[in-house]
Nucleic acid binder design. Structure first.
Lengths: 335, 335
DNA sequence: TACAATATTGACAACGTTGTCAATATGAAG
DNA sequence: CTTCATATTGACAACGTTGTCAATATTGTA
C-alpha cells in the first residue's frame, strides 16, 4: 500500500539501514549516496511510519498537558472536545491552523501524510483554504466538516440553523420597535457569517424594512472588530437603536464601545449577539443571544468521524441543529 | 522491562494469541481459560503496548480537531499550548482532570500506564490529588509541575511570583487611599491562591493595617464565586472601598454584581484582579490586573519536560517568573 | 609498502502486537 | 461407533522501523 523504507532502499540500491541513516540525519553516509537516497525518497514520496518508530524505540512522541477541569481555560468548544476525550479509545488532538503560516501548514501536512491521525474534523474558516482542503482530499483521510463554506463532494458535515437563528432574532428586535439595526458582520469566508447575514436581510424584507448598507459593517468576529464597528455606527448622523453582533466577541467589543461613549444598554441602544459560547452572561448587563449549539455540533462531528474511521455506516451525512434565543438584559423596547 | 503479552502467556500456560483474544474480547476462549488469563493479567499488571497495536493494524488511534487560529476558542494558556504544537516532534495532548470522576481517572491512568505519553505537565490544583501524584511517581514518567502546592521530591517546576504580585498590587491600592480592601480568595488547594493571600496580608501589615477576616471571602476562582462573594461584601455594614479578586473570572463576577447593585467602578469601588489571562481588558471599564506570565510558564514547562523526556540535562529545576501590574480603568483614588 | 585506525555499509534481530491458517478437541447426528 | 461440523487453541508470519555488530572500504602513519 504505502511506501516503506524497503521500497526506497531497493530503488536506491542500498540497505534499509542506510536509508534510515539518511532519514535520521546520522553520520557515516557519503554525500553521493545520501543524495541518491534523498532523490528516491522525494520521488516515491516516502514518509517514515511513526508507529514503527514508536514501537522500536519504545516512545510515543506524544506529550500531554493536564488541565484541571475546574479551569477557565476553556471556551465551550474546547471544553466539549476535552470532555469527549474521556470517551472511547481515541486521543483527540487539538491543532490550530493559520493558512498563511508555513510552520502550521507543514505540521498539518505531517499529521496527515504520516498518518499520525486517523481522521480530521475541520472548523470554519479552515475549509476556505484550498491548499488544506486539497491535501485532505488527496490523502483520503476520513474527514468531517463543521459548518463548511461550500459542502463539497459528499464530505459529511454538521452545522446549525444560522439563517433561521438570525431571522428570528432580527424579527424580535423589529418587534421591539427597532427599525434601524446595526449589523456587525464577520468575514465572508465563513459559512455561518453568510447565513446569518442572509437571515438578517430576510427578516428585514419580510417586515418591509430596507437593508441599509451603512448599518452593516464588515468586521472581524473579535473584540476590536466589534469595538471599531460600533464606534463607526454610533458616529453616524442617524445611529441605530439596536446592534446585532454576529459573534460574542464582537458583542463584547460593542458593549465596551457603548460604555465608553456613555450610551446606556439597553435603554438607549439594544445589543444582541450570535453564539452564546460562554461569557455572554458574564458581562453586564448580560447579552441577549442566539445560542449556537456548539456542544451538539462538536459531539456529532466527532461521532461521525469515528464511524468513518471505523468503516461503520453513516446513517446521516448532514446534520443541522436548531438554534435558540436566550433572553437577557441587553434588549429593550425602543423608546 | 515492562510486562508483555508473552509474559502473560507463559505464566498462564497458553499461547500469546489466546491472551490477545482475551484482551480484545474475541470469541473462542473457554471461560475457564479466560479467567486464568485475566487473573495473570491482573497479577502481572499487564497493559497492551499501543504502539505495537498501532503498527500491526496500521492505525494511530488518534484523531485531530482542527481549529482555525483566528478562533476565539482559546484562553491564553490553551493558546500557548496550541502554538507550541507547531514546534518540535511532539503532539501535545490537552487533557482535563476531575479528581472525583472515575472516567477521568481511568483515562489518565491509561495514558500513563500504557505509555501513550512520554511525559506530563500538571497544572494546579491537579497536584493536590494524591491518587494522581502517586500514580505519576510510581510510573516514573517524566513530569513537570506548574505552580505545585507542595514541590515534592525534586520534581521540577515552573511558577510565578504570586506573593510579590499580590503584595505590590495591595500596596498600590493602599497608596490610593483604600484601607478596607475586600479579598476574593480562591480555594486553598491551589499554591497560587495561598501565595497571593500571603502577599496581600504582608502588604497590609507592612502598612499597619489589620487583616480583616470579614473582608476576605473564600470563593471559587470563577464567575459565580466572585459574584456571590461581592454581594456578601457589599452587604456588610462597612463595605470595602476596593476589591481584590484573585482571579479574572472572580473579578468578572464581582463587576457584574457591582453593576447590578448600581455601584460605579471605579468611582465608588475600585476593582483589581490577578491573572490577566485574556478578557480583563474586554469588560468595561477594563480591569487593572496583576499579569500572570502564563505564556512563559507554559513554554518553559514544556521545554523542561522535553529535556527530561530526551534525557538531556536540566540546567535549572525550578523557574519562577516575575509578575507585572497592568493599569486599566477599574481603580481610582478613594474619595 | 605495510599496518593500524577509522569511515562506510549492510545483514539481521528486535520491538509487541494482531491476522492467518492449520491442528486439535468437542459435540451432534447418523 | 463413526463421521462430520464446529469450537478452541497455537505456531508463525507480518507490520516498518531502529540498534547491534560484523564486513568492507578508505585514509593516515610509520
Amino acid at each position: 500500500m504505502s511506501v516503506t523504507i524497503r521500497d526506497v532502499a531497493k530503488k536506491a540500491g542500498c540497505s534499509i539501514k542506510t536509508v534510515s541513516r539518511v532519514v535520521n540525519q546520522e553520520a557515516h553516509v557519503t554525500p553521493d549516496l545520501r543524495d541518491r537516497v534523498l532523490a528516491v525518497i522525494d520521488e516515491l514520496g516516502y514518509v517514515p511510519n511513526i508507529s514503527a518508530r514508536r514501537l522500536v524505540q519504545n516512545r510515543s512522541y506524544m506529550i500531554c498537558i493536564l488541565l484541571h477541569a475546574s479551569g477557565v481555560f476553556q471556551s465551550s468548544l474546547i471544553s466539549k472536545v476535552l470532555d469527549l476525550g474521556y470517551e472511547g479509545n481515541y486521543d483527540i488532538l487539538i491543532q490550530t491552523y493559520y493558512p498563511a503560516f508555513s510552520r502550521s501548514q507543514s505540521k498539518i501536512a505531517s499529521l496527515i501524510n504520516e498518518r499520525r491521525i486517523d481522521g480530521l474534523v475541520t472548523t470554519p474558516p479552515c475549509d476556505s483554504d484550498p491548499y488544506l482542503i486539497n491535501m485532505i482530499q488527496q490523502s483520503k483521510l476520513p474527514h468531517v466538516h463543521i459548518a463548511p463554506i461550500n459542502p463539497t463532494g459528499g464530505t459529511p458535515y454538521v452545522s446549525a440553523e444560522d439563517y433561521t437563528g438570525a431571522y428570528q432574532m432580527t424579527e424580535r428586535l423589529i418587534g421591539l420597535g427597532h427599525y434601524r439595526i446595526g449589523l456587525l458582520m464577520g468575514l465572508r469566508n465563513h459559512r455561518t457569517s453568510l447565513d446569518r447575514l442572509y437571515g438578517f436581510r430576510a427578516a428585514l424584507e419580510r417586515n418591509d424594512l430596507a437593508f441599509n448598507e451603512q448599518l452593516a459593517i464588515d468586521s472581524e468576529n473579535n473584540f476590536p472588530g466589534g469595538y471599531n464597528a460600533t464606534k463607526i455606527l454610533m458616529g453616524l448622523k442617524q445611529p441605530p437603536s439596536a446592534i446585532f453582533a454576529l459573534s460574542d466577541e464582537a458583542a463584547a467589543g460593542a458593549l465596551f464601545a457603548l460604555n465608553e461613549l456613555g450610551i446606556k444598554v439597553p435603554h438607549q441602544v439594544s445589543l444582541v449577539s450570535f453564539g452564546d459560547m460562554g461569557f455572554s452572561h458574564q458581562i453586564w448587563p448580560g447579552i441577549t443571544a442566539v445560542k449556537y449549539p456548539v456542544e451538539q455540533i462538536v459531539e456529532q462531528s466527532v461521532e461521525m468521524l469515528i464511524k468513518l474511521v471505523e468503516d461503520r455506516p453513516l446513517d446521516v451525512k448532514q446534520m443541522i441543529f436548531p438554534t435558540t434565543i436566550i433572553e437577557r438584559g441587553s434588549t429593550a423596547r425602543k423608546e
